[in-house]
Design a binder for these strands. Structure first.
Ligand SMILES: [Mn+2]
Ligand SMILES: [Mn+2]
Ligand SMILES: [Zn+2]
Ligand SMILES: [Zn+2]
Lengths: 128, 128
DNA sequence: GACTTAATTGCAACTTAGTTGCATTTGCAT
DNA sequence: ATGCAAATGCAACTAAGTTGCAATTAAGTC
């Protein structure tokens, strides 16, 4: 596990709750909400939110608000965008869009909203 | 006023609440939350949310979630991105980023998060 | 302009993601 | 092992947004 590496050098304790959380984030290859997490492991929501908040302070995790009013959290790997489908609410990591620039601004996160590949095909089948 | 033009051809009534709302959105050159609106005009939140929701169905208005847990609404002009500052929570329209493409996907909205020009300068003054 | 009717409004009650206070537990350094 | 600050779990709370319902209003028809 690379979990010890994520935590070391940071000024936070490696508790069992944090181990479980980070393992889950590493396993899931997509951002997770508290609802997603509590389906997998037993954890109080106060503990969850206090921990992801701390992880964000330490730049271990980053997060964004989806269109279902929930916040999604994931291990911060490298600058990449997230696509949120307005039809099926699915979330995908978009690694092709990486280095957007805007004079004078520092861009830390890019969120794209629209219609995903699947929902697009469902509405505009290729035979039409 | 161009308000009648925004409403005509759509299947909704032009009520005084809607007139006030659209006037406010047109005047403000930035997206507004319900809190912003109720500081300017007296309007029940149910009326506000039901109306902006209808405006969105009719493609008169579009909206996005900021990082202060509030949703912001504005007249839909043309495809342009919005920048949300993670430091000062200000929101700016970014008209330079306009036609992003992603094979197979339909992109309807782009949200950039980061540090705005002002906050950037405050932390990294030009003399350093 | 009066009549009719469906759409809209305003209020209060509700929902729900996320926060906070506090007593108890746990990680970690000495 | 001991001590203590940090972390946990529970319950109470907050606040943006939603919903049911009775009263009001826009807009078409006569
Ligand atoms: Mn990602
Ligand atoms: Mn804008
Ligand atoms: Zn989809
Ligand atoms: Zn700023």
């Amino acid at each position: 596990m690379q979990i010890e590496k994520l935590i070391e050098e940071k000024k936070i304790k490696l508790t069992s709750a944090r181990k479980e959380l980070l393992e889950l984030f590493l396993k899931a290859q997509r951002p997770l909400s508290y609802e997603d997490v509590k389906d997998k492991i037993k954890m109080d929501k106060a503990t969850f939110y206090r921990n992801v908040s701390k992880f964000e302070e330490e730049s271990i995790v980053n997060s964004f608000e989806s269109n279902d009013k929930k916040r999604y959290y994931g291990i911060y790997v490298s600058a990449h965008a997230h696509f949120i489908c307005q039809v099926c609410s699915s979330i995908e990591c978009v690694k092709s869009i990486t280095n957007m620039q805007l004079e004078g601004y520092k861009i830390q996160d890019v969120i794209l909203k629209g219609v995903c590949k699947q929902c697009n095909q469902r509405n505009n089948p290729p035979s039409s």
